[in-house]
Amino acid sequence: MIELERAAYSYGGGELFTDVTLTLAPGSFHFLTGPSGAGKTTLLKLCYGELIATAGHVRLFGENTRKMDRDRIAMNRRRIGVVHQDCQFLDHLPISENVALPLTVAGRSEEADAYLGELLAWVGLTRQAQQLPPELSGGERQRAALARAIILSPDVILADEPTGNIDWEMSQRLLSLLVELNKLGKTVLVATHDMALIRAAKAQISARVLRLKDRKIQAAEVDL
């Protein structure tokens, strides 16, 4: 699905991380952890082509991101659902239209009627469908972002600190949705520094934990 081969990323003369080799196999569940500023978000951005590695290679579905033009990257993003900590919505559109945005962009807006109701019910946002994003709580926004990320039934789901702004109960609910998606065969990578969330996930599924520290990536099983 997504492969990083000796990938590095530098900016402003400094190297954020180097020599990162990682393969997200189909159906796998990974956590990416590490201290703030270690480069978790940057590494995720490499995984969906928003940034290009300054050294090494990143392959999305077998294609090297360095050789892709912007249209090709856009097409590949339709196979990757992304959930950010700050969600990033179009604040002037209701939640239903925000969630359906990937379908609209893909020219499949007529399919929204078939999927949207079921999807909003699955994330528990049926009542909030016509509300604007700023009117929703942090947890509701995260669930809406997850619904938007999966409406195209992507192969991979990348979540960047998805529980950063929500309470523990809501974190558990969001985690259970991600676990459910993984059980449906989706590849999941979650960047988080919430160890309790990782332990809760490992109780339910086989998840691999990676730690980004001192500019390197390493397996972190022993810490848990």
């Binding site: 928003e50 912007r70 249209d71 856009a74 993003r77 339709r78 990033q88 945005l101």
Partner: peptide, 16 residues
């Protein structure tokens, strides 16, 4: 800029 960021995030091409 926020609209452009979100559109890109969900796979919109530049022409779109």
């Amino acid at each position: 800029a926020q609209v452009i960021r979100v559109m890109r995030l969900v796979g919109a091409k530049d022409s779109y």
